[in-house]
Simulated assay, not measured.
Amino acid sequence: MPAFAQQTSAAAPSIVAASDATADAGMPAGASGVPAKRTDAGSQPPAANDFDARQKALDARTAENNYRYAVAQHNCYSKFFVNHCLNSARDDMRVVAADIRKEQLALDDEKRVEHARQRDEQAAIKRAQNEADAPARAAQDARNAQAYDEKQRQHQLSQAQREAEAPQRAANEKAYQQKQQQHAIDQAQRGISPSQAAANQKAYDAKQADFQRKLDQAHQQAAQKAQERAEKQQRFEQKQSEATQHKADVEARQKQAAEKAKQKQEEQAKQQQQLDQQQKQQPQQ
């Protein structure tokens, strides 16, 4: 036996085994030997393993067709009318290949429909989830807005209270200074020596300086806290603005993606129509 015949004979059992495995999978086969399509309207959408099994069956038929054509080519060279034999083998191969191609296109259409269905289903689930979460998000936003308004009102009340207490603080400070001055006068009247009075005055000045220093620190801390509150308010408003802009961007991208997907589906449908027309015109040519 020639070497080519031995190679093709060795490959034949694997091809036949692939076809038998497809038949044993429990799928009904058509006249061409491939699994028939589901035509019952009440059946569930085809699973991915169903698509895989049908694709394997088509691949096995293609391999078997190529194998038979190769064997026929090899056998033609031992005949008298070689060219006629080769043309006949090629025609037989093309007939089977066209049938396989037709079923491949149908399988690809079913895959596209199933993928589109799954994509639409996922999109619907996501929309439903977003709609279900919308009340919770709205409630949280309302709570955040209420908390912010409450903080603003509390800040305004504190500010108003500090402003209302400012005259009383000034009056208390003036009264304290007057008391200190009266104390110095009383010491002079009691006959305190100038050196002792100077020491007392120095201690008084030190206390006044310490008091003034603490007062200045309190003012600085109050100003710093006011600045921090203003910065926090600015950051909060910036985050709110960014969140609004992000939401608008996401919605715009989703809308653009939906439009692109729709355009792609229309283009694929148009290409499929053109391909079907070409397939119909080939037998006529």
Rank of each mutant, 00 (worst) to 15 (best):
residue 25 A to R: 11
residue 26 G to R: 03
residue 27 M to S: 04
residue 28 P to V: 14
residue 28 P to K: 12
residue 30 G to L: 10
residue 31 A to R: 12
residue 31 A to H: 07
residue 31 A to V: 10
residue 32 S to T: 14
residue 35 P to H: 13
residue 35 P to M: 06
residue 36 A to D: 14
residue 37 K to F: 11
residue 37 K to V: 03
residue 38 R to E: 15
residue 40 D to E: 08
residue 40 D to Q: 07
residue 41 A to C: 02
residue 43 S to W: 01
residue 43 S to Y: 01
residue 43 S to H: 04
residue 43 S to T: 04
residue 45 P to L: 05
residue 46 P to E: 07
residue 47 A to M: 07
residue 48 A to L: 12
residue 48 A to C: 01
residue 49 N to V: 09
residue 52 D to A: 13
residue 53 A to N: 04
residue 53 A to I: 09
residue 53 A to Q: 08
residue 54 R to M: 07
residue 54 R to F: 03
residue 54 R to C: 04
residue 55 Q to R: 13
residue 55 Q to S: 14
residue 56 K to A: 14
residue 56 K to T: 09
residue 58 L to Y: 06
residue 59 D to Q: 13
residue 59 D to G: 10
residue 60 A to I: 06
residue 60 A to L: 04
residue 62 T to A: 11
residue 63 A to C: 02
residue 63 A to D: 09
residue 63 A to E: 09
residue 64 E to M: 02
residue 64 E to F: 00
residue 65 N to F: 01
residue 66 N to A: 15
residue 67 Y to K: 08
residue 68 R to T: 05
residue 68 R to Q: 06
residue 69 Y to F: 12
residue 69 Y to C: 03
residue 70 A to I: 02
residue 70 A to D: 10
residue 71 V to K: 02
residue 76 C to I: 07
residue 79 K to W: 08
residue 80 F to W: 07
residue 80 F to C: 05
residue 81 F to L: 12
residue 81 F to A: 14
residue 82 V to R: 08
residue 82 V to K: 10
residue 83 N to M: 12
residue 90 R to T: 13
residue 92 D to P: 01
residue 92 D to G: 10
residue 94 R to T: 10
residue 94 R to E: 10
residue 94 R to I: 12
residue 94 R to S: 05
residue 94 R to C: 02
residue 96 V to Q: 15
residue 96 V to L: 15
residue 97 A to W: 03
residue 97 A to I: 02
residue 98 A to K: 10
residue 99 D to N: 06
residue 100 I to D: 11
residue 100 I to N: 15
residue 101 R to Q: 15
residue 102 K to Q: 05
residue 102 K to L: 03
residue 102 K to T: 09
residue 102 K to A: 06
residue 103 E to T: 01
residue 103 E to V: 04
residue 104 Q to E: 12
residue 106 A to D: 11
residue 106 A to R: 10
residue 107 L to I: 05
residue 108 D to R: 06
residue 108 D to P: 00
residue 108 D to V: 02
residue 110 E to L: 12
residue 111 K to P: 00
residue 114 E to R: 15
residue 115 H to T: 13
residue 118 Q to I: 01
residue 118 Q to G: 04
residue 118 Q to V: 01
residue 118 Q to F: 01
residue 118 Q to H: 05
residue 120 D to Q: 15
residue 120 D to C: 00
residue 122 Q to F: 10
residue 124 A to G: 08
residue 125 I to N: 02
residue 125 I to R: 07
residue 126 K to A: 14
residue 126 K to M: 14
residue 126 K to W: 14
residue 127 R to F: 06
residue 128 A to E: 13
residue 128 A to L: 07
residue 128 A to N: 08
residue 130 N to I: 00
residue 130 N to C: 00
residue 132 A to F: 14
residue 133 D to H: 11
residue 133 D to A: 15
residue 134 A to R: 13
residue 134 A to N: 08
residue 135 P to A: 09
residue 136 A to P: 00
residue 139 A to V: 09
residue 140 Q to A: 15
residue 140 Q to F: 09
residue 142 A to I: 01
residue 143 R to K: 15
residue 148 Y to S: 11
residue 150 E to V: 00
residue 150 E to R: 06
residue 150 E to C: 00
residue 150 E to H: 03
residue 151 K to Y: 04
residue 151 K to C: 02
residue 151 K to T: 06
residue 151 K to Q: 13
residue 151 K to W: 02
residue 154 Q to P: 06
residue 155 H to I: 08
residue 155 H to L: 14
residue 156 Q to T: 11
residue 157 L to F: 05
residue 157 L to S: 05
residue 157 L to Y: 06
residue 158 S to A: 15
